[in-house]
Nucleic acid binder design. Structure first.
Lengths: 110, 110
DNA sequence: CTGTATCCTGATAGATACTG
DNA sequence: CAGTATCTATCAGGATACAG
């Protein structure tokens, strides 16, 4: 087993928002901050900024600043970020096959 | 995307110890409590008991009490628990392929 | 529009000691 | 041997306000 690789990878997808951001960016290239904020509704301004920054640090997301006024910044998945999608899909699929729908909580986003 | 299935599945493998227990039980059928405790060294007595209980509740592990004196209890993965192994492997494999070894922390168990 | 700083709360992990 | 109870430390998530 590779517990450390597991932990390191989990670090990247763990938490309430990371995969949701991953899927958002995967579905919508050139996403802007406030668009993301709007699309992921109950997320907090601060948390979104925090999570995105962590994903940038991890090399999953790249930030493109247009240096315009008013501020214009776009986010995209890097190759590394894209390569994570199939991994997350496997997790979702297992849940889909093995988790009783009645156990699932309220839909947060879909 | 299936955020809820993802969250529900993550719930089962999240945390510092759950996959390690999963791998331990996968590699050694009929594991006993103190054997697990010894094999997973820095784990705490309380934490191990807690995590196992959660995995039993989730249907991943089954407990077999031999009703002997001194106490003799064995743990095994259920089918559901076993089916989680390939999922966890995918995560480990991605880490193996994408994470710089220098970023990895000390080996906890291997 | 994009980002940072403060403060608060709940969940998780761990040290330690006790019970049948 | 197997399991529970207490208390404490740490961290992720969130509410809110402020700044370039």
């Amino acid at each position: 087993m590779y517990a450390n690789e597991f932990d390191a990878t989990m670090q990247l997808i763990r938490g309430k928002w990371k995969i949701r951001i991953l899927y958002q960016l995967n579905g919508n290239e050139h996403s802007r901050f406030n668009t993301l904020e709007r699309n992921m509704k109950p997320i907090t301004h601060k948390i979104l900024a925090e999570q995105i920054q962590q994903m940038i640090d991890a090399g999953l997301v790249e930030r493109h600043d247009f240096h315009e006024q008013p501020l214009h910044v776009e986010y995209n998945l890097t190759k590394k970020g894209q390569s994570l999608i199939p991994v997350v899909d496997v997790i979702c699929d297992w849940g889909l096959a093995n988790i009783d729908p009645s156990e699932l909580k309220e839909t947060l986003c879909d």
